[in-house]
Write a protein that binds this DNA or RNA. Structure first.
Lengths: 133, 133
DNA sequence: GTTGACCTTCCAATGTTGGCAAGGTTTACA
DNA sequence: TGTAAACCTTGCCAACATTGGAAGGTCAAC
């Protein structure tokens, strides 16, 4: 039995985000005191930590909803969990490849830029010309 | 002299985004015909391509504003351009490292998940326990 | 009993892009 | 000349996750 501030501190999920997750249906509506304050149990905090950890691993809220459902489902197939996780890994790796491509291009351009008081700069020239796209 | 649709097709920046860039001040307000249509010159398209290329390299709009200003400034120091580019590279690499950390963790967890009909799954166990944070 | 720390809901903003609606303009063709 | 299609205009809504603030109610400590 704790209010939202305590639950936030205990779980690492801000009070703001706890209310948000409730509003979008990721979490069930919290029970309330007579005066309208939300209150949480240690079990609720456990769920919040699960959500927090999944967010830290970059899962989208929709994915976390699926993971939570599987977590609660004692008859789940581990294949379903693995599928979600590896799908997420694939998305992360696509993103990494995209960012790495940017880094490679920029590093190459920057390597040829004097970086002094003169105005000539291959970085601008590349942007100017469209980089050979 | 072309309208926004032609400028969009010629630059690779959608008409929607051209209006957006104008609204946030990244681009100056386009000239208008008597009837209110925006119109663009080849030089304007040149600027739009610059913006497009910079976006492709992951620069935020604020950075692109700086780059555009330097591009227009004949007395610029290439050091300023290089600084912006390398600052962006550093940000990209921080992001990549963050995503790579997620991938590593998930791959490790998934490697120990049977991925069959049984419910046991180290991925859920990790999320459950907080991954030893 | 007052103060301060907490809680509530609602509204807004971030950054980039797409989509839709309602209405005006231009172009092409019969 | 008429008309239909393709374009343009503005404005609002949506996404994604999160943060901030305002205005007002409640609780705890002193």
């Amino acid at each position: 039995m704790m209010n939202i501030g305590k639950a936030a501190a205990a779980s690492g999920v801000s009070a703001k985000m706890i209310r948000y997750y409730e509003s979008i249906g990721l979490l069930p509506a919290a029970r309330r005191t007579d005066s309208g304050y939300r209150f949480y149990t240690d079990e609720d905090v456990h769920v919040l930590r699960f959500v927090r950890r999944a967010r830290d691993l970059g899962f989208a809220v929709a994915d976390i909803g699926e993971l939570l459902a599987l977590w609660h489902d004692q008859g789940r197939a581990s294949a379903d969990v693995k599928r979600i996780a590896l799908g997420h890994v694939a998305a992360l790796e696509r993103k990494i490849a995209e960012l790495q491509g940017m880094v490679d291009t920029l590093r190459m351009l920057a390597a040829h830029c004097h970086g002094d008081a003169r105005p000539d700069c291959p970085i601008l020239t590349d942007l100017d010309a469209g980089g050979g796209r």
